[in-house]
Design a protein around this nucleic acid. Structure first.
Lengths: 235, 235
DNA sequence: TACCGAGTCGAACGAACGTTCGGTAGATTA
DNA sequence: TAATCTACCGAACGTTCGTTCGACTCGGTA
């Protein structure tokens, strides 16, 4: 639920113009301070994700975040430069974590079908475990403009590309013919739509859902790649 | 593109507290005035849909609408009571028109598979012909609260129900077993996601897209309803 | 002729917005 | 001990928001 690690921060431009001092202080003290800063920031991002999820980015106010976190309005700006950067940090961290998890999981699956199922399962498990950040990622898809928007869109393209390649592998292995673009986007539609309807009290959990949706999708592209026109009768 | 008819207005509570006079004026003059009012309102709703589509409901301002329509800020409120009602009118009209079109089309299709294909085709054709209103409908799905929200949600449930019943018929006719709820929601995900990626210069038109997505979806639920576990090998 | 309602407008209302400024307490460094 | 830096705050800044008010014109009605 919480954005519990910001390990990605060091590789990008420092947040809020906060300079990374190069020679002052002992390394230990420095790390301690930075990790304290990061932990506080991560907690703020978690609150922000919940608020953006509930009221939408435009509908949410910095005063909402101030109220939710107990920190003063001005104090918040110690941790980020603007409301827009807040959204950027949430989206970027969410996307990068999903991709990182996915890459890890894909290492232990070689069968093309299995790899697509891993993709779906990873996406769904992350979505269910981080509902709020995930809705912010999907729903505020074209909210960010300029550099921040460009950067997040680049990560999105990367994620798209991974799925596209998995589908091409599957297609090649089975000798099928179908539009990978349409297939990827249909799959994304199915799995990104879930946040609008999933109710943990009546709907299956991530694993079961991933299996069922994987079945629908894979049978769909499989049979569609082989035959044309009408769906075969069952008897 | 434009919300070109508001034929639904007479059956609901009058917009903006505007009373329907009962005895004053000749009937012809009355009709003329009302239709003039409706035409102007419909034009405003078209502009509003475009603006809500571009900037989101919360991000759009009444001043944006004033600028786009050339009407003064105060003048707008002659046609509706509030910004919220504006969104309500757009969503309601869009939903009711889709359902009306669908009911008409379904009358000339009796085969269960064919009827599902009609559903998909209707949805996609309307979406492509009314991109802006459609995005507002999908994207601002849970923006409306209270009475307006309740009413739109009721129409949405009706639309869901139609699709659900079509799927049950298909299931019964083919003797299949699968979760209709999951199938409907997967299908909705596929077709409601389109607005995020469709590019008329590179992607197929509504008819072709409806056929391809229909193939994927129908093969998906068909084979999934018959077999379990792994996808059959193609050789 | 007097009147009325539809349609439209400029100007303003109070509230809320994102952000900034000047400061302070306390820990760390020189 | 003096200087510096981190973390935070109250109070305000200027702007924009949705909405309202009073007034005006104008075609149709009594």
């Amino acid at each position: 639920m919480a954005l519990d690690s910001l390990a990605t921060r060091p590789v990008v431009a420092p947040v809020n113009g906060r300079k990374l001092r190069e020679v002052s202080g002992s390394k230990n003290t420095q790390d301690l301070r930075d990790s304290r800063f990061d932990r506080r920031l991560a907690k703020l991002l978690g609150h922000a994700a919940r608020i953006f999820c509930e009221k939408g980015y435009e509908g949410a106010s910095m005063r909402d975040l101030s109220r939710a976190t107990g920190m003063s309005l001005a104090g918040l700006y110690h941790y980020f430069a603007s409301k827009e950067e807040l959204l950027y940090l949430i989206q970027k961290h969410t996307f990068l974590t999903i991709i990182e998890d996915l890459r890890e999981r894909l290492q232990s699956a070689s069968d093309p079908e299995e790899r697509i199922r891993v993709f779906i399962e990873n996406h769904l498990e992350y979505s269910m475990a981080n509902k709020e950040a995930m809705k912010v990622l999907v729903h505020e898809d074209d909210t960010l403009k300029n550099e921040h928007g460009t950067e997040v869109r680049a990560i999105k393209r990367e994620y798209y590309r991974i799925c596209f390649d998995l589908l091409e592998d599957f297609q090649r292995a089975r000798g099928l013919q179908f539009s990978c673009r349409l297939a990827v986007l249909s799959l994304f539609g199915m799995i990104n739509w879930i946040y609008t309807w999933h109710n943990p009290r009546v709907d299956a959990n991530a694993g079961a859902l991933a299996r069922e949706m994987g079945d629908i999708f894979l049978h769909g592209v499989l049979n569609n790649g082989r035959t044309k026109t009408k769906v075969a009768r069952s008897k």
